[in-house]
Write a protein that binds this DNA or RNA. Structure first.
Length: 331
DNA sequence: TACTCCCGCCAGAGG
DNA sequence: CCTCTGGCGGGAGTA
């Protein structure tokens, strides 16, 4: 690993708040930062420092965003900005892509090494599971008529060994990561399953935003569920994958647009308010930086200072050789 | 308690 | 060997 890690529990500012460091916020900041301005090239290390996060996190965001077509990997450490306009295209492709069948099917686990749908030719034979999982997750919505999905169900439905509970747990963690960034983009939204009361996610789709605010619903009619992947030729098997100890019944048709979305101006996703409108409008303003990020991204000074500070801290506790991080940071 | 999901270790790929 | 990637899951933060 290259960059400095640190920010161990004991060094975190007492004001530390986990939520401020969520992938969703990082994603929002990232999009605002590169969103407009003809910034064509994105350097990961540069982005990491500008956004005040460790490099590792950039890989998460970048891999998810690439699945949506917003950016494209150019090479080591560099990505190019494609734009939000690519989203509809990317989604359409996912919708139609005829992989080893999208998620939802039970048949595709090649024993031994569970193998996720890989086609998605996008680019080289890169098996980034997060990318694959992201695509599969999206396809779950686009190629079926479900209105909302429980991540646990999604994990079971998506490619992989759904027998291995540990693997499932890990997959669910990843889905949370993905859901976070998509929620921040308002591509999906969190809700609760009417009957089970359990947390679930609903697909909102991407709506092109026209200058004057009028949006052009792209693949979703406000509060009109059905219509989702309904006519996609190849969605064939979408249901199945049911059962599950606790709540069998799994996804499929949970319908009932409880929280009729749209209308509202801001939605709360995990307590974080997302401004529906001014999203990525223009000018990288309103960026929400993490706890130790610079206050104003244009001032590299602040960043440098921060970095220096961080380095110091690192040195300070250098000799210690912390076998295990996650110490405490009790309450 | 149940749900979230950040954090960073570390293996593997690339150069 | 070094740097870049990113799988992975422990366990802390939240609701």
């Amino acid at each position: 690993m290259s960059s400095f890690h640190l920010q161990k529990a004991e060094t975190r500012p007492s004001s530390y708040q986990r939520k401020e460091k969520s992938l969703g916020i990082l994603c929002s900041n990232f999009l605002k930062l590169y969103g407009e301005e003809g910034v064509g090239t994105i350097e990961l290390d540069d982005a990491a420092s500008k956004l005040g996060v460790e490099r590792r996190r950039m890989y998460d965001v970048v891999n998810i965003l690439e699945s949506i077509g917003i950016i494209e990997r150019k090479g080591k450490n560099t990505y190019s900005w494609k734009g939000f306009g690519e989203i509809p295209r990317a989604l359409e492709e996912l919708k139609v892509s005829n992989d080893n069948d999208n998620g939802a099917s039970s048949s595709l686990q090649t024993n031994g090494k569970n193998y996720p749908l890989e086609s998605l030719r996008t680019d080289n034979r890169r098996d980034k599971s997060l990318s694959i999982l992201t695509r599969s997750f999206i396809k779950l919505f686009l190629c079926s008529d479900v209105d909302m999905i429980l991540l646990d169900d999604a994990a079971k439905a998506l490619p992989g060994d759904n027998q291995d509970t540990t693997a499932l747990r890990t997959k669910v963690r990843r889905l949370y990561d993905i859901a976070n960034v998509f929620s921040s983009m308002r591509l999906i939204e969190k809700t609760y399953c009417p009957e089970s009361r359990k947390p679930a996610f609903r697909w909102l789709g991407w709506k092109a935003e026209t200058e004057n605010g009028s949006d052009t619903a792209m693949d979703l009619n406000p509060s009109r569920k059905r219509l989702f992947g309904t006519d996609i030729t190849n969605h064939s098997s979408k249901s199945n994958k049911v059962d599950s100890s606790t709540n069998r019944k799994s996804n499929q048709k949970v319908i009932e647009p409880i929280h009729k979305r749209d209308g509202g101006s801001e939605v709360v996703h995990d307590g974080i308010k997302v401004d529906q409108h001014s999203r990525y409008s223009s000018k990288p303003r309103g960026i929400v930086f993490g706890p130790f990020a610079p206050v104003n991204m244009s001032s590299l000074k602040a960043q440098e200072a921060e970095r220096k500070r961080v380095t110091e801290v690192q040195e300070t506790l250098g000799s210690g050789s912390p076998p295990h991080y996650h110490d405490s940071q009790r309450r």
